Simulated assay, not measured.
Amino acid sequence: MKVFIAGATGVLGRRLVSQFAAHGHTAVGLTRDERGDTIVESRGGEPRRGDLFDEESVVHTAEGADVVIHAATAIPTDDPSPEDWELNNRVRREGAQVLTKAAADVGADQYLQQSIVWVARQPDGTAFDEDSARHPDDPSTQSAVDAEDISMEAGELYDFDVGILRCGYFYAPDAYHTRKHGEALIQGDQPIIGGSETAKISRVHVSDAASGFVAAAEGNLSGIWHVIDDEPVSMAEFSTALAERLDAPAPERISEAVARREMGDIQVDLLSSPMSTSNDKLQAETDWEPKYSTYKDGLDHVVEHWESE
């Protein structure tokens, strides 16, 4: 099977290249420069230069693909403003438009779209699943909803299978926000937001997110799945557990109002609002199961990796 991956040099995309290649598939990664070529090649993939916003370019690079995957993002960092999210919103929306058309043009059998579980987070904080109503609550969430709709409509129009993989909140040793989180804890500068002590959030180690895409592709499936681990965890519990593993000071608490001034509304809402769902559907329909079934297992791996560096 030939798999074309947009976003192949990102934290998820690198693992997609590695895991598809390890399963004996041809992993073709969309790249923009020599550095991207090196990343894809080092993971066992074939780099092809192109531009996500140029349909002709993407069709050329995706030629021969059986599966097309949209794993590209442009998540902003370091206290982003609403304007900083606009590129990520464009990557989701326009990227989905270009990639679904390319999938049709190259005759792909399946298109897989990365999304986020909190598009279906319920206003009252109750648990939810793949059939729950979506509630986009900010522009970044709305763009994920739009990308899902673009994908599903394209599947009906062009008659290929479409899979929407809604991932939990990512963490991994090489994920930017995880590294910043660990560094801040060591420096005693990673507070816990007031109100986040009881807000359970569904997370996933990025390696497990990638293996969910592999399972969906190898099963040639259509549908929506939540790709998360087995145990939602609050920000307070996650931060405390990571601090303990790093022998860092116990994180202090700050009020939600202070957090909003320092971190921005989008990040505070994400971390302080309940987001509890399950991976039951993905496990029932594929042979997937998370290697890091809880955040405890995943944080052990994260810290072991950092120590080995």
Score class of each variant (00 low, 15 high):
V206G: 05
I228C: 08
N220T: 13
I228K: 09
V227H: 09
A236I: 13
M235S: 15
G223Y: 01
N220W: 12
G223K: 06
P232E: 09
H226V: 04
A216S: 09
R245C: 02
L221E: 12
M235T: 14
G223R: 06
A215S: 05
A217N: 11
A216W: 05
W225C: 02
A215E: 08
E231D: 15
H226Y: 03
D230S: 05
E231W: 05
V214E: 02
H205E: 09
V204E: 01
G223I: 07
V233A: 10
P232W: 01
L242V: 10
H226I: 02
W225R: 09
G223M: 10
S222D: 08
A209K: 02
A215G: 04
E244P: 14
I228P: 04
A217S: 01
W225V: 03
N220E: 15
E218Y: 05
I224P: 09
S211R: 13
A236Q: 12
E218I: 09
G212M: 06
N220M: 15
D208M: 10
A243C: 11
S222R: 07
V214S: 00
A217C: 00
A209S: 08
A243Q: 09
A236W: 11
G212F: 01
V214R: 06
E237I: 11
E244W: 06
F238L: 04
R245E: 07
D230R: 03
S211N: 14
A243R: 08
D208I: 00
A241G: 02
A217T: 09
H205D: 06
W225F: 14
D208H: 07
A241C: 06
L242W: 08
F238N: 03
I228E: 03
E244L: 12
D229H: 03
